[in-house]
Design a protein around this nucleic acid. Structure first.
Length: 480
RNA sequence: GGCCCCAUGGUCUAGCGGUUAGGACGGCGCCCUCUCACGGCGUAAUCCCGGGUUCAAUUCCCGGUGGGGUCACCA
């Protein structure tokens, strides 16, 4: 048996996701249980959405929860680099082999043709997928057109008959009819690989033995198996963990749940409590026990105790678990955590310029800055401020939500950048800037008067600000 | 819609043919107590439905129903 090697492979396209921590936990625990290696690989092949800020945030967040990787972009290892954007040559070379063996082919179809094709297939209620037009072209034509500089993607030539069967560690045998599987794009026009190709190539070259990932990947596993077969490689073992869910059972999403690990840190959750809670999602240590440390989880871990119903991620229960961890700390321990959280010199220093002209005595400082240290706020006392004059509650709620969405793609989270962004945003929506600003102010602080708005927003923090904007929107909706 | 996965209280779960269906969060009530919280005790609430198999099904099989995922040059 080769040594166990597992990986977590996040895509740096946004906030560090709680689902990433969830899957990382099971990978980490399984690796440690078996004396194996846990690898962090950054899947940044989507050049338009990947950002270095997001990558940094993911590394920071994973360190915060305490899941340290053995090999990764910041740690030397024998199978690097660990960032897919730095492995382009490898994917191209492997793709060339696939084209040569006939397992893959160049496709010159335009986006418009594919769009029309899908539309028609959907209209007729047929299987939706590539129709194989370019699969029928001769190698000569394909070579000539590509060397003439025509742009193309490379597609996997899926077998058209038979079925692909694999063993999922948690479900047993899973079968797919090959005819139902699309000729997946492996290499994009920009020369970067898609997830499917990069993932298989890297998992093989990095000698990954067990792919432990979320259930959303289950239905693309046959494509991956076919790739392993085409390369003549041994496929890893497959473990598809259940998906974390919103209260309505849909896949956990930022619209319905705080999803950023940065939020959980800002909201005062202890990393060991978060990990413990995530460990009870779909897994149990024993019938009558739910509190355990990472070390204890590692000690007794087995996939046999995974249950497959998608667990609803419940902030109330998480808070209850957190409370137990918090109470177990001694007084000095609590102080230490408070300092690591918001009562640090750095944070207090950042607040002083915002309020120094606004206080006459020291005793006014805490009441005046209270909302910088709070979590969810009570909007009832400021309810009428949340609906600007001449706007309806519905409009206000929609505005708040639209603004949160806009914040998602705001890379520069500084007052200097946020203000013009908000002004432009207001103008585009046909709002006066001051209408929007007051709305944001009240949502973020539950007050009518604060220090300059965007200094306030920045000090509250991106994730807490977003949470409050959403909660304020919910609140306003109920006023309608 | 096609394909795939799943199904124990509101939620997280234990159970792996015979149990008064266990624990936790949340709810409610009582006790503790100057208040609140903590803590303690108690209480309501669950095996999706229908067929099989079996002496016996929450548990095994099949079918429904329900929920979810996936069908991108995103991962």
């Amino acid at each position: 048996m080769p040594p166990v090697r597992v990986r977590i492979a996040p895509s740096p396209t946004g906030d560090p996701h709680v689902g990433t921590a969830y899957i990382a936990l099971f990978n980490y625990v399984f690796a440690k249980k078996n004396g194996g290696q846990f690898i962090l690989r950054i899947e940044d092949t989507d050049r338009t959405r990947s950002t270095p800020e997001s990558e940094e945030a993911i590394l920071r967040a994973l360190k915060w929860v305490g899941l340290q990787w053995d090999e990764g972009p910041d740690i030397n290892g024998p199978h690097g680099p660990y960032r897919q954007s730095e492995r382009s040559l490898l994917y191209k070379e492997e793709t060339r082999k696939l084209i040569e063996s006939g397992a893959a082919y160049r496709c010159f179809c335009t986006a418009e043709r594919l769009e029309a094709l899908r539309h028609e297939q959907r209209r007729q209620g047929l299987f939706v997928g590539y129709d194989g037009l370019c699969r029928g072209r001769t190698r000569e034509e394909s070579d000539t057109r590509s060397s003439a500089g025509e742009s193309f993607v490379v597609r996997l030539a899926m077998p058209r008959t038979g079925e692909t069967i694999f063993i999922d560690r948690l479900r047993g045998e899973v079968k797919f009819d090959n005819a139902q599987i699309d000729d997946q794009v492996l290499l994009k026009t920009d020369g970067f690989p898609t997830y499917h190709l990069a993932n298989v190539v890297d998992d093989h070259h990095m000698q990954i033995t067990h792919v432990i990932r979320a259930e959303e990947w289950l239905s693309s596993t046959p494509k991956h198996i076919v790739l392993y077969q085409a390369f003549g490689w041994q496929a890893p073992e497959w473990v598809h963990m259940p998906l974390l869910r919103n209260a309505d059972k849909s896949k956990i999403s930022k619209r319905k749940n705080p999803v950023s690990l940065d939020y959980y840190r800002a909201a005062g959750f202890l990393p060991e409590a978060l990990l413990n809670y995530l460990g009870t999602m779909g897994w149990s240590i024993a019938g009558d026990r739910e509190l355990f440390s990472l070390a204890e989880m590692i000690e007794v871990f087995t996939f046999d105790r995974v249950s497959l119903g998608g667990p609803v991620f419940d902030l109330v229960k998480l808070s209850a678990v957190n409370a137990i961890y918090l109470r177990a700390l001694d007084d000095a321990g609590v102080v230490k955590r408070l300092r690591e959280w918001r009562l640090s010199d750095d944070f207090l220093k950042a607040l002083v310029p915002l309020v120094r002209e606004r206080v006459q005595r020291l005793d006014e400082f805490i009441p005046l800055t209270e909302y910088f240290f709070a979590g969810d706020l009570d909007y009832a006392p400021v309810a009428k401020e949340l609906v600007p004059k001449n706007r309806t509650a519905k409009e206000a709620a929609e505005m708040l939500l639209a603004y949160v969405e806009a914040l998602d793609t705001q890379r520069d989270f500084t007052p200097a950048a946020l203000e013009p962004m908000a002004r432009a945003f207001a103008e585009k929506a046909g709002w006066q800037a001051k209408e929007l600003f007051m709305l944001i102010r009240v949502a973020v602080s539950a007050r009518k008067a604060t220090p300059p708005l965007f200094d306030t927003v920045v000090a509250v923090g991106r994730d807490m600000a977003k949470r409050r904007l959403r909660l304020a929107a919910e609140f306003v909706k109920k006023l309608a």
